[in-house]
Amino acid sequence: MLDPLLLLALMAVGMLAGFVDAIAGGGGMITVPALLSAGLPPVAALATNKMQSMVGTGMAVFTYWRRGFVALRDLLPAIALTFAGSLLGALAVSNVDVTLLNVAVPVALIGIALYFLFAPKLSDADRAARLPFGPFVPLMGFAIGFYDGLFGPGTGAFFTMGFVVLFGLGITRATGSTKALNFTSNLAALVIFIPGGHVVWPVAIVMAIGQLIGGYVGARTGIRYGVKIIRPLVVVVSIAMALKLLFFP
């Protein structure tokens, strides 16, 4: 029987993570250590994290969509290929050596942080795309989805960077679209985790309640303040994830 105070604390953790994740991604940096500290085995912590995180991400997607910042119809091919890529990545994880990613991913995240910190033209306005949206967003979805199933950290930052740099979306629209594909990649992982019995449901449910609140408030905050809050949070979260991967793998 889980301690009610522990469950209440985990709900608060879910709320904070949902808020941060709805704006800049990286909520797993908050929730996974909390779940491990609560005594969950690593696989159960990862599975439970995916479950509760998906709820918060879903709320964020719904909020961005309701406010006109996510074109779900345009994203349907990318959603399908993100799901397929994430599922393949999760199935391949036991057969692939990800040691190189422990160095490559932090370097990439620091690069993303530097871009968002110093790029002078970042705004909420859309710009000219470098690549056609229709054929290339699904390819990006598949590639990053595969990475998320295989390894995971920084997935949201990579999606946001792709939408801004390659497809010219303003930061708020890029964030909303990122949440839609992040939700999809989390769902694909749960296709494997749930039948395996790895999700600790009492913990997932209370944290999901926190995620619903945090995801809604975070998405509303991102929509209200746009580039003013999304830009610095992406920088902070990207650097924090890079440091964690380098020094606390």
Rank of each mutant, 00 (worst) to 15 (best):
A129T: 12
G85Y: 04
L166M: 11
G215C: 10
R220M: 14
R224K: 15
I223P: 07
L243E: 05
S94I: 07
V32T: 15
I144N: 01
A125S: 14
R73F: 03
I30P: 03
R231N: 09
V199D: 04
P195E: 06
G28D: 01
L212F: 09
G222T: 13
T99V: 12
L88C: 13
F193A: 12
N182E: 10
N95W: 09
G58P: 06
A90N: 10
D97K: 12
S86Q: 02
F69T: 09
F146E: 01
I205G: 11
G25V: 02
A208G: 15
P42T: 09
S185G: 08
G141V: 01
L8P: 07
G27D: 04
G145P: 02
T178Y: 02
A204T: 10
D21Y: 00
P138Y: 00
I239T: 14
V93G: 07
V98Y: 00
G154Y: 03
L212N: 06
S94C: 06
L245S: 02
G68M: 10
T155H: 05
L246S: 09
G111H: 09
V203R: 03
P33K: 13
A174D: 04
P33T: 14
I213G: 02
F19N: 01
A125H: 08
R220S: 13
F247V: 05
M59W: 04
M11P: 04
S86I: 02
A128D: 15
A45E: 07
D148P: 01
V93T: 15
F83P: 00
V55A: 10
I209E: 06
S238D: 12
S37V: 15
P120E: 12
G28R: 01
Y216K: 13
L40G: 07
Y216F: 13
I171A: 06
F247K: 06
S53F: 00
N102L: 14
R127K: 15
L46M: 14
G214H: 03
P135V: 06
A44C: 11
V107M: 12
V43E: 15
F151Q: 10
P138H: 03
I112M: 13
G226T: 09
T82E: 02
F69C: 13
N102T: 10
L212I: 14
I112S: 09
D3E: 15
L117W: 08
G27E: 04
I23H: 01
